[in-house]
């Protein structure tokens, strides 16, 4: 549905048009609230690349690329996964639990924690797929409702049974340093989470471009009837894609817990809005993995620039959310503006 029959060139033109239109509309919003749009955009641009900006952009790109690819692999196969929040929470919690309570030595514990997150997030999304396949409840709705349930459930768990009473916050104990993912490898500005995400991204890109499975998923997204007639088992494939999409979301949760936050704090995983930003990046890229990665890095830079702009001008950084949403809306509305045929 989303992967329209656009060739690369006109797709690129469409995206550029959307960005320009969104910047103009966003400038209008800024102007109406009495600020100077030009200085706002200048601050965002500077903040994204200058000083610590580039490092921050890179760090923010890791979870964002992950969530965007989770959305993209589902979209590619014709599934809209709105439940990334829930899958990330369940995955993050599973990782925290394993890292905190499974008595195996350090590195093994980290590996086990990542594996647990992948399974937990995947199964959580798979459950929603089963509801669609067996009862006809749309995956889009079921996955989203599951998010709200995961939010309440994890919030309860870290406030009561799993809470670290030493801190004033609703959060678990800290993960032992042995089970954490190193923030720097060989003193390079490269974290373990970055490496894991890079490997995942490469696998997804290669699978999409050359893998037999990626080919089947893409063809299913383009025409499910044709795929079925060509011998694809649609039910099994839907379950598999949903599982992998959720597994990736779960992995992102684990990378954030083990590589950055070191404990599961209520609300901390969802606050930056990786799921929705990622979904928008995937839609913008029309679910092509490489374009999705580019779009998510762009969005990460935009957000980092937004924070810098907030510090400099005192305007809410959430303006960058407005821009992201406007880009998507302009892209979706484009066929109406340039009525083809």
């Amino acid at each position: 549905m989303i992967a329209a029959a656009l060739d690369t060139k006109s797709r690129l033109a469409a995206i550029l048009f959307s960005i320009v239109a969104a910047v103009l509309l966003g400038g209008l919003v800024v102007g109406l609230t009495g600020a100077n749009p030009i200085s706002v955009y200048l601050e965002i641009a500077k903040g994204a690349v200058l000083g610590r900006g580039l490092d921050e952009t890179l760090a923010r790109s890791v979870p964002l690329v992950g969530m965007a690819l989770a959305a993209a692999i589902a979209l590619r196969a014709g599934l809209v996964n709105l439940g990334g929040d829930g899958q990330m929470l369940i995955g993050g919690l599973a990782a925290a639990l394993v890292a905190l309570y499974v008595p195996v030595p350090g590195v093994a514990r980290a590996v086990l924690a990542l594996a647990a997150a992948i399974c937990a997030g995947g199964l959580y999304a798979w459950l929603a797929a089963i509801l669609q396949l067996s009862l006809g409840i749309p995956f889009l709705i079921a996955s989203l409702l599951f998010s709200y349930i995961a939010r309440g459930l994890t919030s309860y768990l870290v406030r009561y049974p799993l809470r670290d009473p030493a801190t004033g916050m609703p959060e678990t104990y800290r993960v032992a340093s042995g089970a954490r993912l190193p923030a720097h490898i060989f003193d390079l500005p490269v974290s373990m989470a970055m490496i894991v995400m890079a490997v995942v991204a490469i696998v997804i890109v290669v699978n999409d471009r050359s893998g037999v499975n990626g080919f089947e998923w893409r063809m299913t997204g383009l025409n499910a009837r044709f795929a079925q007639y060509s011998g694809v088992n649609l039910s099994r494939q839907t379950q598999r894609v949903a599982f992998l999409s959720g597994a990736l979301a779960g992995l992102v949760g684990a990378l954030l817990i083990l590589g950055q936050q070191y404990r599961f704090t209520d609300g901390a995983l969802l606050a930056p809005g990786y799921t929705w930003s990622g979904l928008m990046a995937a839609v913008l890229a029309m679910a092509s993995p490489i374009a999705t990665i580019v779009a998510s890095v762009f969005f990460a830079a935009l957000q980092v620039g937004g924070f810098s702009m907030e510090r400099a001008l005192g305007l809410p950084a959430v303006l960058t959310w407005v821009l992201q949403a406007l880009i998507i809306l302009c892209l979706a509305a484009r066929p109406i503006l340039f009525r083809k045929r």
Binding site: L82, L315, P316
Partner: peptide
């Protein structure tokens, strides 16, 4: 031409962003 699902997602996020932004601004 427009996909109502994409537009719906976009509008939901725009609403969340815009209201929060205006609240601050």
């Amino acid at each position: 031409g427009g996909d109502p699902i994409v537009i719906g997602i976009g509008l939901n996020l725009l609403a969340a962003g815009l209201t929060t932004y205006l609240l601050g601004a």
